[in-house]
């Protein structure tokens, strides 16, 4: 591609300015998490801490079984990610490559599920969970999270599967490949960037979810991280440094998953180049 000489520099500056805006509020959060006495937030806010202490981090991690919540969240998120991506890949494949009766009806139903505000159906959903014996259980969380994410993930993946060139599909048919081999040998590798994206979002969805976890989890031993962080908020006063410190720690695993996912985005480019 022809590139203007200054173009790379301009592009870098634009991206850097954008990144600064993205990160500025987060800096205030980190700064506050490093300060003592944060029940009253300073105004004007501090972009850099005036008095540095790791006290909030120590408290956030050592108090109230943070490690246990962390592991619970990790388990729930990983299990949800595996289940969601596996199931959605198959359903998306079916929607992208097969014609079956009521295909559009089923797909619309799936989408309609995304449109109903979840907050109002929480009471019937809770009663259902109770009848299924899925209250106060991490597997129960995985089950409902997976069920809740399949629609979104299928929708996401369908767009990618549909883009797989028909010629490649037909070429494999000529070679005598069955559906399974096509799915595993062609669609999955070509959709790697999309699958990585789906996994990144699915992990985040399990990691971040609060309202449903609040509703079904009561046992303190089964709390996920968002519940643990919310527990730091008091009725009248909240030590913001503590909440922010816990939130900063909570962000790390999701960033790691994202960085790991990125490798596959690049791998995807390579795969595309082979075509």
């Amino acid at each position: 591609m022809r590139a203007h000489p200054g173009w790379a520099v301009v592009r870098f500056i634009v991206v850097a300015v954008g990144a600064v805006f993205m990160i500025a509020p987060f800096l205030i959060m980190i700064s506050t998490s490093l300060e003592p006495n944060t029940s009253i937030l300073p105004s004007p806010p501090h972009f850099f801490p005036q008095e540095v202490t790791l006290d909030n981090y120590v408290r956030a991690i050592t108090e109230n079984n943070f490690g246990g919540y962390f592991l619970n969240s990790l388990f729930v998120s990983v299990a949800t990610t595996v289940a969601t991506v596996a199931i959605s890949a198959m359903t998306a494949f079916a929607f992208a490559r097969f014609d079956f009766r009521f295909k559009n009806v089923v797909f619309s139903l799936l989408l309609a599920g995304l449109m109903i505000p979840g907050i109002v159906i929480i009471v019937p959903q809770f009663i259902l969970a109770k009848n299924l014996g899925m209250v106060d259980s991490l597997w129960g969380l995985v089950f409902f999270y997976t069920a809740g994410q399949i629609a979104f993930t299928t929708f996401l993946l369908r767009a990618f599967f549909e883009r797989v060139p028909h010629e490649l599909d037909e070429a494999m048919t000529v070679d005598g490949a069955g559906i399974v081999r096509k799915f595993v040998g062609l669609y999955i590798p070509l959709a790697r960037p999309a699958l990585a994206t789906a996994a990144v979002f699915s992990f985040l969805g399990g990691w971040d979810e609060y309202v449903w976890a609040l509703t079904v989890i009561t046992d303190p031993l089964k709390r996920t991280l968002p519940l643990g962080i919310a527990a730091f908020q008091g009725a009248h006063t909240t030590a913001w440094g503590l909440v922010f410190a816990a939130s900063v720690v909570a962000v790390l695993p999701v960033v790691i998953v994202y960085v790991a996912g990125q490798k596959h985005f690049i791998a995807g480019i390579a795969a595309g180049a082979v075509k």
């Binding site: 993205m22 987060f26 990691w207 971040d208 609060y210 922010f244 909570a250």
Partner: peptide, 11 residues
């Protein structure tokens, strides 16, 4: 750019 996405809505 991804960090805002992963930080909890409440916070």
């Amino acid at each position: 750019f991804y960090i805002p996405v992963v930080t909890s809505w409440v916070v």
